[in-house]
């Protein structure tokens, strides 16, 4: 009996170890997303000077980040538990979740393609991108305290 309990808890441990990485990886990518958008939004709000080349580099970094965001690899089944704020709804509605990320990527690409020439243009783009962050976090994320 005791052995069985140990065996089961080993299994549980192994399972959480296997999933520890995708959770950490997706959180690291999200954090990077936040940092980049944070820098851009300071420029959009005129808190920092507008430099077209630097802004474009940041937008490209945002696109690279989004292209690295491989949902199948980062959100394997079972990775909804543990130290994560991902909502179970992701796995109930994987297609919907992917559609939001696709729209986000499309908006980032559009911003890169139409490189903003001034802070006002950037503001509009950051507004659209920021709204995508909110839409996804609204449906697919839960703060657990």
């Amino acid at each position: 009996m005791k052995k069985l309990v140990i065996a089961i808890s080993m299994l549980a441990l192994a399972a959480s170890a296997a999933f520890a990485d995708p959770i950490r990886d997706r959180q690291a990518l999200m954090k990077e997303r936040g940092k980049i958008v944070g820098g851009l939004s300071k420029v959009a709000k005129d808190e920092e000077p507008f430099d077209a080349a630097a802004v474009l580099t940041q937008l490209q970094a945002l696109q690279a980040n989004a292209e690295k965001f491989d949902i199948d690899a980062l959100f394997p089944k079972g990775s909804e538990s543990g130290d994560t704020t991902a909502a179970p709804k992701i796995w109930e509605d994987m297609a919907g979740f992917k559609a939001v990320e696709d729209k986000y990527l499309a908006d980032v690409k559009a911003a890169v393609a139409a490189a903003p020439a001034d802070a006002d243009a950037l503001k509009t783009q950051v507004g659209a991108i920021g709204s995508d962050c909110g839409t996804c976090h609204q449906g697919y994320r839960i703060k657990k305290g």
């Binding site: 936040g34 962050c133 909110g134 976090h137 609204q138």
Partner: peptide, 20 residues
């Protein structure tokens, strides 16, 4: 105004509508 926290997380859940 923007939904961004000081460390640039973005508001989620029921707060998104409130923030908008």
């Amino acid at each position: 105004e923007t939904g961004f926290t000081p460390d640039f997380d973005s508001a989620g859940g029921a707060m998104v509508d409130v923030q908008r």
